[in-house]
């Protein structure tokens, strides 16, 4: 495991989350509706950021599976707010030049007659910088 201090501090700063408040109960992962899609689960995001083990997260598809439904935020007994950690790692990944997870060229393939604008706008905001 590689401890990347710089990235760790960056993610703590962006997210405003203190991962050391976690008591390892796993309620975030118990409540997560995207759990089965994820390689790293919400409690692992918190734990790996606490350990400074950031690279695997940056390269993981798990970043794009979080629904931002905030269930982990509301149900965490320690007020850790795991979804904010996931968001901070995702932003760190896509803020790099050329690292957008979605581009305008992807749209025509996705769009259908009944696709609401909200879907595209939201996906763009989550996946693109």
């Amino acid at each position: 495991m590689h401890n990347n201090k710089y990235l760790q501090e960056e993610i703590i700063r962006i997210s405003g989350v203190n991962p050391s408040k976690c008591m390892r109960c796993g309620k975030c992962s118990a409540t997560c509706p995207a759990y089965d899609e994820m390689e790293y689960h919400p409690h692992q995001f918190v734990n790996m950021v606490e350990c400074g083990d950031i690279e695997p997260l940056l390269n993981s598809k798990s970043l794009y599976k979080c629904l931002s439904c905030f269930a982990c935020i509301d149900r965490c007994p320690r007020g850790v707010e795991p979804a904010k950690v996931v968001e901070a790692v995702r932003l760190t990944a896509i803020r790099k030049q050329g690292a957008n997870h979605m581009t305008a060229d992807d749209i025509p393939a996705i769009i259908e007659e009944d696709t609401p604008q909200q879907l595209l706008v939201s996906a763009f905001r989550k996946y693109t910088k």
Binding site: K84, V121, S122, R125
Partner: peptide, 9 residues
């Protein structure tokens, strides 16, 4: 924007 970005920055 459809979704709120929780990042402080």
């Amino acid at each position: 924007g459809g979704v709120f970005t929780t990042a402080n920055d």
